Amino acid sequence: MDINHINPVLDAFLNVMPQLGLGEVKKKDVTLRGRFIESPGVVVIIGLLGDIKGNIIYGMKEEDAKKIASAMMMGMNVENFDELAQSAISELVNMLTANASTNFSKDNITVDISTPTLIYGKFTANSSSDKVICISMEVNGAIIEVNISLEKNTI
């Protein structure tokens, strides 16, 4: 895992969140994890392939996901983590990762992203490599765990 693969992802939070009315973005903790990621309630997995390969696993508590979905839907009250709220969170991850992909291109790193997969409940996700850097991002009081598992593509 190259530490230079972290900043494009973090910069995406600073670029995208304010556009959605979520302007309070802070990096909290950085930890090293193994391959298995315990779900905090809601997990969205998205793959990257190109000059680098791997995945980013975004995780958050269901209450935080509802809070973020509500902000994305112009303050509409989100009581249940239903199809509409799930779609909003999936689209958020898509926007963040697409922006990160654009940031990578500024460093002459070409990547394509997969369609995000959202899962919620109690389970363990399996990242694409044994070394995962987890960055906790606070967004308007909600915590999003960003588990980054990327490596140089040798093919």
Rank of each mutant, 00 (worst) to 15 (best):
S129A: 13
G23W: 12
N15K: 15
M1S: 07
V25I: 01
E83V: 08
N15I: 08
V78L: 07
G141L: 12
G21P: 02
A69E: 09
V16I: 12
E24G: 09
V139H: 01
A65N: 03
G34N: 09
E79C: 07
V43Q: 10
T110N: 12
Q86K: 15
S128R: 10
S70E: 12
I68H: 00
M72G: 11
G141C: 11
L118R: 05
A85G: 12
E91Y: 12
I6W: 04
P18S: 06
V111A: 07
A12N: 00
N140E: 14
F81E: 03
E38H: 09
I133R: 07
V9S: 07
I143C: 04
N153V: 02
V146N: 07
D11S: 15
V44R: 05
D2C: 02
V139Q: 01
A125Q: 05
L96N: 01
S128V: 12
I3A: 14
S129M: 13
P40N: 09
T110V: 09
D130Y: 00
G34M: 03
K27R: 14
V132M: 02
L84I: 13
I135Q: 00
K27E: 15
I68R: 00
F123R: 00
S128D: 12
L92R: 05
I148G: 05
L10W: 09
G59P: 03
A85C: 10
K28T: 07
N94A: 03
L10Y: 10
H5Q: 13
G47F: 13
E145Y: 10
V43Y: 11
N77D: 14
V9M: 02
K53G: 12
K27A: 15
I155R: 03
V93G: 03
M95F: 05
V42T: 04
D11V: 08
Q86A: 15
I143L: 11
G21W: 10
A71K: 14
N4V: 01
N77W: 10
G50F: 04
I109C: 06
L92Q: 08
N4M: 05
I6L: 15
S136L: 13
T110I: 11
V111L: 03
P8M: 04
F123I: 04
I57L: 13
C134I: 05
N147S: 08
F81H: 01
A100Y: 06
